[in-house]
Design a protein around this nucleic acid. Structure first.
Ligand SMILES: [Mn+2]
Ligand SMILES: [Mn+2]
Ligand SMILES: [Mn+2]
Ligand SMILES: [Mn+2]
Lengths: 218, 218
DNA sequence: TATAATTTTTAGTCTAAGCTAAAAATTAGT
DNA sequence: ACTAATTTTTAGCTTAGACTAAAAATTATA
């Protein structure tokens, strides 16, 4: 059994590994967790002792198979609870992260098994992120960032990269959610900004907006 | 905001206060929490500083209004989650305590508000214990222990005093659950044991069994 | 009521997890 | 290839919460 702090570190390292491929630095961990590098180093050393990750001084950490399995379970729990909060309790997609951050640490395999089937074995969470199965397998989908599309192309929103309340609320305001079709009417190559069409609305989006929305083409 | 440890102490003291009226001793707290008296003393001193309880050295602790309010919220959460686990996820009443023990510490008033209405604003948990409302008010019901009944009297099971898996599983085996009618066919005054009738079954129960079952008469 | 038994508190350690400041290693700039 | 800047680790403190052993207070007993 792992402590709350250990679980949060493991999950963070797992997520950092997806982006940055290879070993993840203690500084990256600390930044991502709003803590200090020295604290991250301490924890990484402890987790290395427990064989949850491999760690080479000054070179960073990498989860072992054991570590990945632990991380996957936490991610599964987090996303299942998010589905529960949205589908069953009627929360909005921008309100669930904080609560799921707590619920993901409840220890009970039976609970998760039952929750999963109560929810109808969902495969994606409310933000479009895949929910790993009991064995830890993620559904791999080929998706692009909206910012990768060019003029006259279109895509269907399948997820968000950033899921801060601020960003999600912006999307709500623009009526963009999972399943929304987006047409790229124009793209400015100087700053990467775009003019897009959503339903009957046409409006401008900055590169930062377009960089955080996943779409599926074809 | 209170820590996990603080919340567990507060809840325990609240429950001890119901039984033992007046101040509760640090030893009683320690016993009830499977910890040492010295640890209980430390925590009680800390909680006294925070005005959660009043404490007189060698005389014990008593929750303040503030403390009672905190305790009530935790009890409310615990019992609502138990209803969720049984009614929605299909857990058995002897399996939910451990999990609710964790879930009761999730911090989010909005979550509890929504959970409550999702469950249909239940007033009793799966063990027959009353669920306090948002203001902390408990429904007062006059109930007796089965052991208080005499020969030829009967009662309807409305709750359990003890809710260990062992006891609950015993009741299951005898087909006793909330709502079950129990007739007292005989009572031995030497040891308090009884012969009772449940449905078509007639069997012997010890005083210990009868001492932990709440019934409603009339 | 004096002594013995019991309960409760205090003093001193320990571990987990955080922090700051300083030291060491790595990377970058000239 | 050397400094200089940056990153990362170490050393040393802090707090929460637990424990053991000893001291102090309370309660029971003769
Ligand atoms: Mn978390
Ligand atoms: Mn999510
Ligand atoms: Mn608890
Ligand atoms: Mn209960």
């Amino acid at each position: 059994m792992y402590t709350l702090a250990e679980e949060n570190y493991i999950k963070t390292i797992f997520h950092l590994q997806q982006t940055i491929n290879g070993a993840v630095s203690t500084n990256a961990i600390a930044d991502s967790m709003d803590t200090k590098a020295s604290s991250a180093t301490d924890m990484v050393q402890k987790l290395a002792d427990k064989k949850v990750l491999s760690y080479v001084k000054y070179k960073g950490a990498q989860l072992t198979e054991k570590g990945k399995k632990i991380a996957t379970k936490i991610v599964r729990k987090h996303r299942l609870w998010e589905v529960f909060l949205v589908d069953k309790l009627g929360f909005h997609w921008d309100e669930v992260h904080e609560i799921a951050e707590q619920l993901e640490h409840i220890h009970s395999t039976e609970l998760i098994k039952r929750l999963d089937s109560f929810l109808g074995n969902p495969t994606f969470d409310p933000h479009g992120d895949p929910i790993p199965d009991e064995l830890g397998n993620f559904i791999k989908t080929e998706k692009k960032l909206l910012s990768q599309l060019n003029k006259s192309q279109f895509g269907v929103c399948v997820g968000v990269k950033e899921s801060s309340p601020e960003y999600l609320q912006y999307l709500d305001k623009k009526n963009i959610s999972i399943g929304t079709k987006i047409n790229v009417l124009g793209k400015e190559f100087f700053d990467g900004s775009m003019v897009i069409e959503v339903g009957r609305d046409q409006f401008f989006v900055s590169k930062k907006i377009a960089d955080n929305l996943y779409v599926q083409t074809a």
